[in-house]
């Protein structure tokens, strides 16, 4: 996984809340068996409308998506994160995210930051008035900076460390293999197994 410490870039102001993962990437794009190449599926239905945000020339270079609350709710599809990343987004800012989406994003090096509604509104206005202006999302300092404005954000210590180090979860867990084995040797005998049974 790529390490993430800080990123500076332009903002795409997506004035919508309750953007579920079906909107981020419709199901028809989920049929691939690879982990990359999902950029064409990002907001696919909305992008057919030429007035849609991401079709505006001034937002072509945006790398930070700022959106309304409840972003990424719904289906667990990790493709939503891959699509955002493949399209070129490095960070998403919203007042609140769907749980599974948030977990997925941090496992894939896409930083998701929760800022209050008022901050999001301010970032939207800025990006609408000055699309070329850049903001900084700083995971080290847990801050979002835009011009002379700074907002702190909360971030779980462990997740932050993992993201900044770009660590793979599986390797991290396998350091405790002995504990897993010990747990397994103590499991109840009646716990079901999937092995075929005679009925």
């Amino acid at each position: 996984m790529d390490k993430f410490t800080t990123h500076t870039g332009q903002v795409a102001p997506l004035r919508r809340s309750n953007v579920d993962t079906d909107q981020i990437i419709p199901a028809v794009y989920l049929k691939r068996v690879t982990k990359t190449g999902f950029e064409d599926g990002l907001f696919a239905e909305w992008r057919e409308d030429e007035k849609f945000l991401l079709n505006q020339p001034e937002y072509q270079n945006a790398t930070i998506l700022v959106t309304g609350t409840e972003f990424g709710t719904g289906s667990s599809r990790e493709h939503a994160v891959w699509a955002l990343k493949d399209y070129g987004f490095k960070a998403v800012i919203a007042p609140r995210f769907g749980d599974i989406f948030r977990g997925n994003s941090l496992k894939n090096g896409l930083l998701t930051v929760e800022l209050p509604e008022a901050a999001v509104e301010e970032l939207w206005l800025r990006a609408e008035l000055h699309p070329e202006s850049e903001i900084t999302v700083d995971l080290e300092a847990c801050e979002v900076r835009a011009g002379d404005r700074t907002w702190g954000f909360e971030f779980d210590e462990f997740l932050r460390w993992r993201m900044m180090e770009g660590l793979d979860d599986v390797a991290l867990t396998l350091r405790d293999e002995d504990k897993i084995a010990a747990f397994e040797s103590n499991r109840d005998a009646w716990r079901p197994r999937t092995l075929p049974v005679q009925v």
Binding site: S76, N104, T173, L174
Partner: peptide, 13 residues
């Protein structure tokens, strides 16, 4: 429900 990275994690561990 879990994401695909987590599916991999559960398969492995």
């Amino acid at each position: 429900g879990i994401g695909t990275s987590e599916v991999e994690h559960v398969l492995a561990t």
